[in-house]
Amino acid sequence: MKYLLILNINAEILDALSEEEQQAIGAAHGKFMETTKASGEFLGTIALEQPAKGVVVKVRDGVPAVTDGPFVESKEFLGGFYVLDVASPERAYELAALIPDAAIEGLGVELRPVVFSDGI
Score class of each variant (00 low, 15 high):
Leu7Val: 10
Gln22Asn: 11
Val72Ile: 10
Gly44Pro: 14
Gly119Phe: 02
Gly108Cys: 13
Lys37Ser: 09
Leu111Glu: 06
Leu107Asp: 00
Ala97Glu: 06
Glu76Ser: 03
Ile6Trp: 11
Asp61Val: 06
Lys31Thr: 08
Leu78Ile: 12
Ala65Ser: 04
Val59Tyr: 01
Pro113Ala: 15
Pro113Leu: 14
Leu111Thr: 02
Met33Gln: 04
Gly80Cys: 05
Ala97Thr: 05
Arg91Ile: 00
Ala97Asn: 13
Leu111Cys: 11
Ser88Asn: 06
His29Glu: 07
Thr36Ala: 15
Ala52Ser: 15
Glu34Gly: 09
Thr67Ala: 04
Phe71Ala: 10
Val72Asp: 07
Ser18Gln: 02
Pro64Asn: 04
Phe77Asn: 11
Ile99Cys: 12
Gly30Val: 00
Lys58Asn: 14
Leu95Asn: 02
Phe81Cys: 09
Gly79Pro: 08
Leu111Lys: 09
Asp118Gln: 03
Asn10Asp: 15
Lys58Ser: 15
Arg112Ala: 08
Glu90Met: 10
Leu5Cys: 08
Tyr82Asn: 10
Glu12Lys: 04
Ala11Phe: 03
Ala24Lys: 12
Ala47Ile: 02
Glu90Gly: 15
Phe71Pro: 07
Leu17Ser: 05
Gly40Cys: 02
Glu41Ala: 14
Pro64Met: 06
Leu5Val: 01
Leu5Ile: 06
Gly26Phe: 12
Ile120Asp: 04
Leu84Val: 12
Ala11Tyr: 06
Phe42Asp: 05
Ile104Arg: 01
Lys37Pro: 01
Tyr93Ile: 11
Phe77Val: 01
Phe32Pro: 02
Glu73Gln: 02
Glu105Asn: 13
Lys75Phe: 10
Ile25Ala: 02
Ala103Glu: 13
Ala24Asp: 08
Glu76Arg: 00
Leu4His: 13
Val55Leu: 11
Ser39Asn: 15
Glu34Gln: 10
Pro113Lys: 08
Gly54Tyr: 01
Ala87Gly: 15
Val63Phe: 07
Gln23Thr: 08
Ser74Val: 06
Leu5Asp: 03
Gly106Gln: 05
Thr67Arg: 02
Ala47Glu: 09
Ala97Leu: 01
Ala97Tyr: 00
Phe42Glu: 13
Ala28Thr: 06
Val114Asn: 02
Asp85Thr: 09
Gln22Asp: 06
Asp61Lys: 00
Ile46Gly: 14
Ala103Phe: 12
Thr35Gln: 12
Lys53Met: 10
Gly106His: 05
Lys37Cys: 09
Thr67Trp: 11
Phe42Thr: 07
Gly40Val: 10
Tyr3Ala: 01
Glu20Asn: 14
Ile25Met: 05
Ala24Ile: 00
Met1Leu: 15
Asp118Ala: 13
Ala16Ser: 11
Ala47Val: 06
Gly62Phe: 06
Ala28Pro: 09
Met33Pro: 01
Val72Met: 03
Arg60Trp: 06
Leu7Ala: 11
Lys75Val: 04
Arg112Asn: 09
Gly69Met: 00
Gly44Leu: 15
Ser117Asn: 10
